[in-house]
Design a protein around this nucleic acid. Structure first.
Lengths: 174, 174
DNA sequence: TATTGTTATACTCTATAACTATA
DNA sequence: TATAGTTATAGAGTATAACAATA
């Protein structure tokens, strides 16, 4: 989804530390042209960005007719796990801007998957819940997510997936 | 940049395979509210997205007054390494839509960092080059990128970085 | 006919600021 | 005064389609 060339050219200062086979520095495109990407494959930002795009594309494809995007799925999940959560708390825990969350919740509410209930204790805030349809949808989504994740495990191996999650948590957890 | 809470609540089916400490399932926000994120921290897509955002934020901050964004840096790098490259080849090797690349190149050209030269052999295509200013800029950018990368190594360790790059390459390389 | 670069459009997402209604 | 949700705006990036010039 991100490319398809193979071949390989230089290797560079790659496998300095551990024994893993390093990312390919060059890449051969559809026309057979080999392009030297220099230090890019050795930059975490580059590798993370390309990986994230590839994984999201598979995720979105996996959701199929449900038409649920990654952010929507994460929001449904957090509401399901914490019924009555406030919008600010969802924003905070998922790192989604509260202004952005408003729009996504509008969609989810219009689709009948989630609902906002004005809090009895603080009339400024909204308690969030899944509807019945939302709960049902989430079961189906989780089934699809599991398939999606299994496809990734096929590339990484179970141990590779565990390692990857642990390394990533060092980056994004506070 | 992405959050700051700590604490911890459940752990779940996390450390099944390898021995690494699993990502925290829950997260405590500024107000002290603990939110259960359920399976999200165990999903590669979620972890990749949050990591990518955190790393890009550091990258952008690292570039400072140069005002160079990640995609621009990758384009400058590829042109520097492959002078005379065509736009379609840059698109292909970096996974940037060719329509998008047109706009970014316009910017880089206006800033005097890159130039397009109509190919002598195929008058449809443009050969791309860095200007002198572009070469100079790239030296400075590489210095800043090195600092940025060093900050990440401080979190992951050299071995962790190498491992991470190798695992990611399995995802995004064809 | 196919390809290169270009223009245009729509949508998602990030980042802000400002407004309202509450507290 | 501060907070929760909302509205509005601007910019970046993805995804397409269509067009002109050239092959």
């Amino acid at each position: 989804m991100v490319g398809r060339g193979e071949r390989r050219a230089q290797v560079g200062q790659a496998a300095k530390i551990s024994g893993g086979k390093p990312a390919r520095k060059s890449r051969t495109d559809a026309r057979g042209k080999t392009v030297d990407r220099g230090p890019l494959p050795e930059l975490l930002g580059y590798a993370l960005r390309r990986s994230q795009i590839a994984v999201f594309q598979d995720f979105i494809r996996s959701m199929g007719e449900t038409e649920i995007r990654p952010a929507q799925y994460s929001i449904l999940t957090v509401i399901a796990r914490n019924p009555g959560l406030k919008q600010a708390e969802v924003s905070d825990s998922l790192g989604i801007e509260r202004a952005r969350l408003v729009l996504v919740l509008n969609e989810l509410e219009q689709r009948g998957l989630a609902k906002r209930v004005v809090s009895t204790t603080d009339r400024r805030s909204h308690a969030l819940f899944l509807t019945e349809a939302g709960e049902t949808m989430l079961v189906e989504l989780n089934r699809r997510v599991a398939e999606h994740e299994a496809r990734l495990v096929a590339r990484l191996g179970q141990a590779g997936r565990r390692q990857l999650l642990d390394l990533l948590s060092k980056i994004y957890e506070a």
